[in-house]
Each structure stands twice: as structure tokens, then as C-alpha cells.
């Protein structure tokens, strides 16, 4: 057996990569190390912090679930069908990724605030967008739904069309084929897209800030504490929130990975 030796130039590439890794890890580690366990425990007991973490997790999860139901079938159409202006549609889906998120929040306000069709309609059925949960979810979804749609579309595109044809030939309706063949086979992509959307929604600041300063999601709370009390008070909240996000992220990844093995 010959050991693969690294070319000198590859060592340089790896050295450069190490700098980038350091750039990501060092600030996070620095923040973690300068926060004591006592501070963390105290922060965790702070009802304002706990409430905002719960709100952030649930709002993002709610936005992900609602938009998954609506946009996963659409992702299937994008993967399977040809139609006019399809490229334009794909471009529109990616739009939220490139526009500044505060601008996205301003744009969103324009259609959900009082006096607009959706805003008034929501008010009539008791859904409050501006300064309400619905508004937070809308802002989170606006900036994060492209991740779900793109992942689901790629997942569906990877399902062999032959299998869907076979299912139709066996007498299944198109809806049944979608639910029993396409979705289960694209499930990993849909799930990882959902995790990505959920994580992205949770970390959203700009768009939510514009639409709903209150109730306060954790990124807004961190910003407020920083502005009002300084770095020392903002840091423990940030560390706690990152920890919670990471924990959920890892658990979901493991669950998604476990499915992969089961499908073997």
C-alpha cells in the first residue's frame, strides 16, 4: 500500500483553509470562554430569555411546517414539469436570498400592515401580523423558504421517473404516487431542506425586526440587550441561544441521517 502524499501546494491550500476555520471558530470560542457557567445558568432562568428562545424555536418551526405543506408539492412540479417562464419562477424563488433582509421586512410590511388586503383580512379572523406571531413567521418564512424549495426540488428530481410511471401503471392515482413514491423517496432532501429552513428562520434578525420588534425573538433580544446594557449582558444570551440551536440542529441531523441507514 502506498500512502498518498500531499503535494506542497495542497499543504498551502490546507493552511489557508485552516485560517478560514479559525476565523469561524475563534469568535464563537472566545464568546463561549468569556461566559461563565454562573452567567449562563442565570440567563437560562431569566423568563424573558427563556420565553424568547421558545418563541423563536416555535415560530420558525411553525413557519417551516406551514410552508412545507404549501411549497413541497410546488417543488415537485418544478422538478418534473416543463412550463413557460420556468426559469423566471426559479429566479423568483431565489430572490429572498439576495435582497437585504431589512428591505425584505419593509417589503413584507407593505402587504401585511393595517390597511392592506391581507392585513385587514388577518385582523378580521384574529391574526395579527405586525407586532404578532403571524408577522414573525411570515418574516422568517420569507427569507428562508428558498432553502426548502430548492432542496425539495433537487430531491424530487433525483427520484427516477420510471418508479412513478410504474406506480401509475399499477393503478395508483397521481396523488397517491406523489404521497407513496415521490415524497418518501425525496424525504431526506425534504427533511434536510426543512432543517435548513428552520435554522435559517431562527437566526433571522433584520426582516423580523422590521415587522415585529415585539414579541421579542432571541436575535432581537440579543440586539436590544447589547444596545441597552452592553456586550456583557448580550453575550450570555447569545451563547445560550447558539447552544440551543446547535443542540436541535445536531439532533435533527442525526435523526435524518438515521433514516438514511434504515433505507440502505
Amino acid at each position: 500500500m502506498t500512502r498518498k502524499r500531499f503535494e506542497p501546494v495542497h499543504l498551502i491550500f490546507m493552511g489557508l483553509g485552516g485560517l478560514v476555520l479559525l476565523f469561524i471558530v475563534a469568535p464563537l470560542l472566545g464568546m463561549l470562554l468569556s461566559t461563565t457557567g454562573g452567567q449562563l445558568a442565570e440567563t437560562a432562568r431569566d423568563p424573558e430569555v427563556a420565553g424568547s428562545v421558545r418563541l423563536t424555536l416555535l415560530a420558525s418551526m411553525g413557519a417551516t411546517l406551514i410552508f412545507a405543506v404549501v411549497s413541497v408539492p410546488f417543488a415537485y412540479i418544478l422538478a418534473r414539469k416543463r412550463f413557460p417562464l420556468k426559469q423566471l419562477v426559479n429566479g423568483i424563488i431565489d430572490l429572498p436570498i439576495v435582497i437585504p433582509h431589512s428591505a425584505a421586512g419593509i417589503a413584507l410590511l407593505g402587504i401585511i400592515s393595517r390597511g392592506t388586503l391581507i392585513g385587514d383580512l388577518g385582523e378580521r379572523v384574529g391574526v395579527r401580523f405586525v407586532g404578532g406571531y403571524a408577522g414573525i413567521m411570515a418574516a422568517m418564512a420569507f427569507v428562508s423558504v428558498p432553502f426548502l424549495i430548492n432542496a425539495a426540488r433537487d430531491g424530487f428530481a433525483a427520484v427516477p421517473e420510471q418508479l412513478e410511471k410504474a406506480a401509475l401503471n399499477l393503478g395508483a392515482s397521481p396523488l397517491r404516487v406523489f404521497l407513496t413514491i415521490s415524497v418518501p423517496m425525496a424525504w431526506r432532501s425534504i427533511l434536510s431542506g426543512s432543517i435548513l429552513m428552520w435554522a435559517r428562520g431562527m437566526s433571522e434578525f433584520g426582516a423580523v425586526l422590521v415587522v415585529a420588534y415585539h414579541p421579542m425573538i432571541t436575535p432581537v433580544l440579543i440586539y436590544e440587550r447589547f444596545g441597552a446594557f452592553g456586550l456583557k449582558y448580550a453575550r450570555p444570551v447569545a451563547v445560550l441561544f447558539i447552544g440551543v440551536c446547535l443542540a436541535f440542529f445536531v439532533v435533527l441531523r442525526v435523526v435524518a441521517g438515521g433514516r438514511r441507514h434504515a433505507e440502505g
Binding site: Q162, L163, A166, A167, N169, L170, G171, I181, P184, M185
Partner: peptide, 25 residues
């Protein structure tokens, strides 16, 4: 009925569920 050249069996189901698929549908 159609038997595909590459069989097109559903990889995420057991053989039993593959066979049952048409009946259940």
C-alpha cells in the same frame, strides 16, 4: 400490466409492499 426493463421496483418498500402496491392502490 407493464414490467419495466430495469424492473422499477420501489426501493423504499419491502418486496411484500411492492407486490401489494397495486392492490392497495
Amino acid at each position: 400490466g407493464l414490467v419495466f426493463q430495469d424492473q422499477a421496483l420501489f426501493p423504499h418498500m419491502t418486496v411484500r409492499k411492492n407486490i401489494a402496491y397495486g392492490l392497495r392502490s
